[in-house]
Design a protein around this nucleic acid. Structure first.
Lengths: 336, 336
DNA sequence: TTGAAAGCGCTACCAA
DNA sequence: TTGGTAGCGCTTTCAA
């Protein structure tokens, strides 16, 4: 199977040494006369030769492969992230080995495989790592960068939205527009993103004297948002403001509210987080916190390049501020 | 950089030969006494050894890597497809090298890279290949399977929805429910999927004496559907039935119609294709043709396994029938 | 069962 | 500028 034609074959055909063929194809053609070079290229074309990258990796001990672990591709926030990472890494002449964590599968089980493939670096989105695994990557000198998650108390690089500030912004917006009865739909409980979003929200409200927040559990999906909203809104004391851990949850919540005969924003204001494409759709017009995805991606790539160049660079956490995106899923309440 | 610890180090540490270490880690541990084996494993753990897969690839000339080329990840139909392919391939102990075609970039430019990485097989979604590239893959004996596209007159394997039949089903449904003024919003013009969907639609209507179909151009996106629908619906002779090349276009079209003050389905019935998650959302309830994605994926994987096992297997085209998914974006018209 | 040794396809060193 | 050669880390004969 695979490329049967090797540099040896090309060399024989062109009447040069195998080393010369290698020079032509490895960019060292500076030290090859134009004539030999074209002879080699001609032979290569005739035989249909393409250098076997595995051989090159073996010799140079450089794979130029970046591993990406993505736990949650079907959350509409991630396809864009993935596409952008791919495009940029391809531009940088890096290949991407993609891994996904199956339901109930820990990222920890995926990483050994990635490490064995000698990836140059690892980007892990929407998931975290055990300390043991962090240590193992460190020992292998493989830089790891968390995207959209943080781990506290660990020595690991991460690029993340400033979720604490984002949660505060939402609380302040809702407060200023006269809301007084607050609710929150969570994401998966131990994800740093939603924990921080909630803490920011809760703290800002507490500073304004609000200590009661109706909580309902969600798992970052449309369906969970739908159900959670219906549970919340069927209760006697209905909130007038609902913040959701992310947009897809919020969109589910909007539909859940409407199917109870409630109007958004007339009966309840709803706010999400992420600014996914659907948030701007006519039927939703969801007010949300826009993550600066492009900035987050570029920051991640910069860190990646830096850490590949210098494996001993200290890990750093970069928080990227978000922006409120006002749309019509909220409306002011008469105060009092 | 990367794993500094090799089988040689483990061998020295354990006081055995390097070959023995290899036997332990390559599944040939049948021919190793339990004592040696545990000595080796113990040393490996002590040193933090993990086999270098690149070395193995080099020696066995088997990468166990499957290449996936995906042109259009942000179309909500694909994240699920990608996630499922990843999960299944991971189960099959295959790694995935993922490529995306940047805007205006041909898949042809990506394939040489994949081939050089000695992928075992290639899955290409939502894109086609030139004859030259098909020939090149054949010469390299790398099986290629098109997912959700076909190429006519070429010797290449493909798994695709039966779009011709799907288009017919939509036409028949709309005709039976009393619609008489038909429109269609295209996808990118030379993609086999939308060409077939349109042909099925047009032919079935022609058989019923309808020869006029209002056409508008789209590119498989929400925005293009929105715009195209507005153009169509501003015209004096408004259609009462609109079929869109895919769901995301149809959803854009629904919002476009509503923003003109029209009601779906009261003023116009709209039908999509794919059955993406958003089609079921409360705000849309889009009638559509459901692709049997899981069946398509399993079929693709079966073909892939078969062709990897037997590189000379003949290419085949498998069409997977879809099913109408009736929702409330259409309503019957009083005939005549 | 174990070890020695060859070699996968390539790059990079050293001599010529 | 070119060729010969060593060797990346591994698997897999072949002998012992």
């Amino acid at each position: 199977m695979s490329d049967r034609v090797t540099s040896k074959d090309v060399a024989r055909y062109a009447g040069v040494s195998q080393a010369t063929v290698s020079r032509v194809f490895s960019g060292n053609s500076a030290s090859v006369t134009p004539e030999t070079q074209s002879a080699v290229l001609h032979s290569a074309r005739a035989l249909g030769y393409r250098p076997n990258v595995i051989g090159r990796m073996m010799r140079t001990r450089q794979t130029h492969i970046v591993g990406i672990v993505m736990a949650n591709i079907t959350n509409p926030f991630y396809p864009y992230v993935l596409e952008k990472f791919l495009q940029r890494l391809q531009q940088m002449e890096r290949q991407v080995l993609l891994f996904t964590a199956a339901p109930e599968q820990s990222v920890d089980d995926l990483l050994p495989l990635a490490l064995q493939h000698q990836v140059q670096a690892l980007i892990i989105t929407s998931a975290t790592l055990s300390s043991a695994m962090i240590a193992e990557c460190a020992r292998a000198e493989t830089p790891v960068i968390l995207f959209n998650r943080t781990v506290t108390g660990e020595s690991i690089s991460a690029v993340c939205a400033d979720n604490l500030a984002g949660g505060r912004m939402v609380a302040e917006l809702l407060w200023e527009t006269g809301h007084r009865h607050f609710a929150y739909i969570t994401g998966e409980p131990d994800t740093s993103t939603q924990v921080d979003r909630y803490r920011g929200y809760r703290d800002a409200l507490a500073e304004r004297g609000i200590t009661q927040i109706a909580l309902e559990h969600g798992v970052y999906t449309y369906e969970s948002g739908y159900r959670a909203a219906q549970t919340l809104l069927r209760q006697a004391s209905r909130p007038d403001a609902l913040f959701c851990a992310n947009d897809i949850t919020a969109i589910g919540a909007m539909d859940g509210a409407r199917d109870l005969g409630l109007s958004v924003p007339h009966d309840i204001s709803i706010v999400g987080y992420d600014d996914i494409p659907m948030a701007a759709w006519g039927a939703y017009q969801l007010t949300t916190v826009s993550q600066e995805v492009d900035v987050m991606i570029e920051t991640t790539l910069e860190m990646l390049i830096r850490r590949v160049a210098d494996p001993h660079a200290l890990p750093e956490l970069r928080l990227i501020a978000g922006r409120l995106k006002l749309r019509s899923s909220i409306q002011p309440r008469s105060k009092g």
